[in-house]
Design a protein around this nucleic acid. Structure first.
Length: 273
DNA sequence: CTGTTAACCTGAGTGC
DNA sequence: TGCACTCAGGTTAACA
């Protein structure tokens, strides 16, 4: 489900509801997630802590507490985080509840359980989780020079290269297709053959696409909702993803869909080179 | 090292 | 209604 824009939309919605709130209880309901969350540590370190800040790193959300403990959420494909009145009915696939001191609960729901919840105790460097991650696409480390050097010698298709979190974080299957469409670069192009000027264009279009997607509240293809349970609207602005057989907005050719590394790549063979 | 495949899960949709 | 099958926004171990 969620790529960088969706996770950022959730962060913005959730942060004002969590900062200053004390976690008064934590409960695990469902079966394990992709990683087994450390229940005992969560009860010992997170319960009693007060929300200080909600940060995003790639597709991860970090709730930092005033005791230096950090809860690290990943939404996987179908994860949802929302604030609910504590007496509201529990839903199917609600896996974690964090009761807050204002009669609300932070609830983590995940149908497919590809999401995760980890804990960083005080003093533990977040590199334990994020050490291998590449730069944020909306920050300075993401540049044409950086991409050119990382792409040295790599024949991997540029779409797979962009979806590699070690290269750059936050770009998943939807936005990889959209960014490459906007940059007019074929997803099949070997990464090492993308030129410096093309990387310049790609960096600029990536930022533009991601910023516009955040502003639109993210993309709701099947089930994404923000922290208030509302969908996003960027799917209406998608130009390539999901548009197989429809006309290309730039050249009028037909958008195609091709399998690449187990995922669907959408692009216009007419104007993406 | 490089790059792709399969596996982890549930649910929605399609065709018979 | 039911069944078999495909597909879905992510990550990562195993493989060639």
């Amino acid at each position: 489900m969620p790529e960088l824009p969706e996770v950022e939309v959730v962060r913005r919605g959730l942060e004002p509801r969590l900062v200053g709130r004390i976690i008064v209880d934590a409960a695990c309901l469902g079966p394990r997630l992709r990683l087994a969350p450390p229940l005992a540590e969560i009860e010992r370190l997170a319960v009693g802590g007060k929300g200080r800040e909600l940060r995003r790193r790639g597709k991860y959300l970090l709730l930092e507490l005033d005791n230096q403990t950090r809860l690290v959420f990943h939404l996987g494909m179908t994860g949802r985080l929302g604030i609910f009145p504590k007496n509201e009915q529990i839903k199917t696939h609600d896996h974690w509840l964090f009761a807050l001191d204002d009669q609300t609960e932070l609830r983590f729901n995940d149908t497919r359980r590809f999401g995760s919840l980890q804990l960083l105790p005080p003093g533990q460097d977040e590199a334990a989780i994020f050490g291998a991650l590449g730069p944020e696409p909306l920050q300075g480390g993401f540049s044409a020079a950086y991409l050119l050097s990382r792409a040295q010698g790599r024949r991997q298709p540029v779409k797979s290269f962009l979806m590699d979190n070690r290269v750059v974080v936050g770009i998943g299957n939807i936005y990889a297709s959209e960014i490459l469409f906007a940059a007019a670069i074929s997803p099949w192009r070997p990464a090492r053959e993308v030129t410096a000027p093309e990387w310049e264009v790609l960096v600029a279009t990536a930022r533009e696409v991601l910023v516009r997607a955040i502003a639109a509240g993210g993309s709701t293809i099947a089930d994404f909702v923000n922290a208030s349970g509302r969908p996003g609207y960027f799917q209406r602005q998608l130009k390539a993803y999901g548009r197989e057989g429809q006309p290309c907005p730039r050249c009028g050719g037909l958008i195609v869909r091709q399998a690449m590394a187990g995922r669907a790549a959408f692009f216009c063979p007419g104007c993406q080179r």
